[in-house]
Amino acid sequence: MKTRHLVPLLVFAALAVLLGMGLDLNPRIVPSPLVGNSAPEFSLPRLEDPARRFERSDLLGRVSLLNVWATWCVGCRDEHPLLVDLARSGTVSIFGINYKDQYRPALDWLRRYGNPYVTSGYDAEGLAGIDFGVYGLPETFVIDPQGNIVYKHVGPLDPAVLEEHILPIVRSFEGASG
């Protein structure tokens, strides 16, 4: 047996290992370049009071969640009770961006299912969403007291994601500040 005849087998073995690793990955999840960086500036009319603005500066000073939602988004409906419970527990303040939605239905939606948000920005054109690199609703950002994005989750939140990823981050900031 000559070593050079072994080369194809070795190359194939490496390839098979790679393919095996691939089975455990989700190729559709795109990590955001914004994580670790400062949240983008934005200024949106508030859903409950369009005369007032919701801006980046409103997020500063405490750790917060920024949840991008819409009434047409099925996953948003699924995760909503979780957000309502979280808001009620007072663990963390939750802000919303109402993405590419209609004004009236959005308000009705909050009235019917509960409003966990300190406030929601009304992003009819989706421009703030684009600045946040939003591509699949719902999306949830964890933003630290200095206004940096420390974590992003795409898709509906579930208790596991909350416990394993989001709440530890939130607690670490609480520990630091208090």
């Binding site: 990955l25 989700n26 559709r28 999840i29 988004c73 099925v74 996953g75 590419k100 939003v134 591509y135 699949g136 609703l137 719902p138 795409v154 898709g155 509906p156």
Partner: peptide, 12 residues
């Protein structure tokens, strides 16, 4: 396990 569910919930 893949989060295949996510793909169903993308915008539009």
């Amino acid at each position: 396990m893949k989060a295949l569910g996510v793909t169903l919930l993308l915008i539009a």
